[in-house]
Amino acid sequence: MPHSDQKPKIILEEFRLKNAPNDFGMADEKWSFKKFTKHFRIVIVRMDNCEMEFDLIGIQPAFANAFRRLMLSEVPSMAIEKVMIKNNTSIIQDEVLAHRLGLIPLKADPRLFEYRPEDAADGTEFNTLEFSLKVKCTNNKSHSKDSYRPEDLYENHSVYSSQMKWHPIGNQISVYKESDVGPVHSDILISKMRPGHELDLHMIAVKGIGKDHAKFSPVATASYRLLPEVVLTREVCGAEAALLQRCFSPGVVGLDHAGRAFVQSARYDSCSRNVYRYDEIKDAVLLSRVRDHFIFNVESVGAMAPNVIFVEAVKILRDKCKSLLDELNML
């Protein structure tokens, strides 16, 4: 087995994943800050408003996993928690409507808000956002006779998230702009109605964490995968090379001018391990993943940029460690 580098690896065998023989697990290693700072790197691969891909290299899985878990469940965000139903004559049930409203991602930076105390009777400008939704479906009097589409026959037959109205309380009007607050997406269908149906709701959004309810999670998903590695153990050419190429995701295996297969970049391999299905080439590759190279993928729901969410997660971990240390020091 070629020892090309000393990266810790997990080998993808045909029927199981197996740690490399020279790898006794990173938990055994003595952790030194010096070594860590030398090896640790963060590489941001791709980032936009809602999605980010970045690499965490040279870190123990416990840390990477802690960040993932924190992003999912402990980084706060704002969501509608209480719905006061003044009138609901639509066919959707009050509870279901409230549930749907709760799941609408809200544009509001949770860092600027406080948690609302459980026993608080009224929200303040620092912990609450208030919205209302008042829609009434009516017959469209000016519709043309030939059309029988509901959008022509009725007005307000579909209630979208854009129809939610923000009601600033206290000083909020001066702090936030109208465009800063509200649903992230304007085209989320809340309910469908017919003439005579009416919604009159008052909604209260508060800050919360994903552990309490998934609607407070700031990410659609945050997860990581280990960096795949594909090593050819012998020369593969001709038809076998083409077959090999097909066994991997596009761009993983390339063919040179002589028809010999070579590994281009294994990073985006889906690790389908389909190469093991072909006896003639299954011995030609060694599939593995690098155990300390985490490719993170964070999809934000839109309230915060994904990079911010990650930083928040790190901060939460830091605070937790701090409080633990404080507790220990108190002993």
Partner: peptide, 15 residues
Amino acid sequence: DIFYSGLTGEPLEAY
């Protein structure tokens, strides 16, 4: 598929 344990963060041994 390869799955990672949500608790430890390491890949599960079985597919």
